[in-house]
Amino acid sequence: MHDSQSTTGPATTMEHEAHNPALRHHFADAQQQKNAASLGMWLFLVTEIMFFGGMFCAYLVYRLAHFNAFAAGSQQLNIWMGATNTAVLIVSSVTVVLAVKAAEAGKRKVLVGYLVVTVLLGMTFLVIKGFEYREKFEKHHVPGPTFNFTDKFDDNGKQIPVNPKEAELFFSLYFAMTGMHALHMIIGCGLFTVLAVLAWKGHYNPGYFTPIENAGLYWHLVDIIWIYLFPLLYLISRHS
């Protein structure tokens, strides 16, 4: 239970940092401020893990309890849209990390470029997600009074009876988990849009680009959550 003594930073650095407009008064130096912001962001990411963790817990419990219905529901998802979206998110994670690199190197235009591309990729993800949701509406796979589920076939094309109520539970979880993930994507797109504008105006320099870094961390975490959602929802029940 110990960390490096960041608080003991020599008071002399104060004089150099005194002119840094981004340095807030209650920090001794820029390094302390940066370390604090980074730790704060990581702790926030932990809260996000626990936040989604509640739904992962529900998924685990219900998949064990209603295996057939979950498999049948899973097979109704569009694996190609899911895979495309995974690829889109991975590429966006690369552009984010390159944006951070550009910020560190002080390349303003490159930074803005990567941020814009990231936002566009995020929106691509959301549009594809939107098409997926539309498909669910058309097939009456949206939980509620209109829900209808009769599509479980075995390998020979013969229909296997599945309790449609339990399939509705699968789709409830599907919408809760992907919906909450999409909400995080929307927030991330908004965040990067603001940062792109600020970066364009020259708010960041090699000495101060913490917001870019932290927003990047957030984006990567949202990516990681999708990296788990994709196999859990789309992949693992295709043979059962």
Binding site: Y62, A65, P143, P145, K165, E166, L169, S172, F175, A176
Partner: peptide, 12 residues
Amino acid sequence: FHLGIFDPRLGG
């Protein structure tokens, strides 16, 4: 929205 995560009628 009738997403029945805890709904016993859906096996929740």
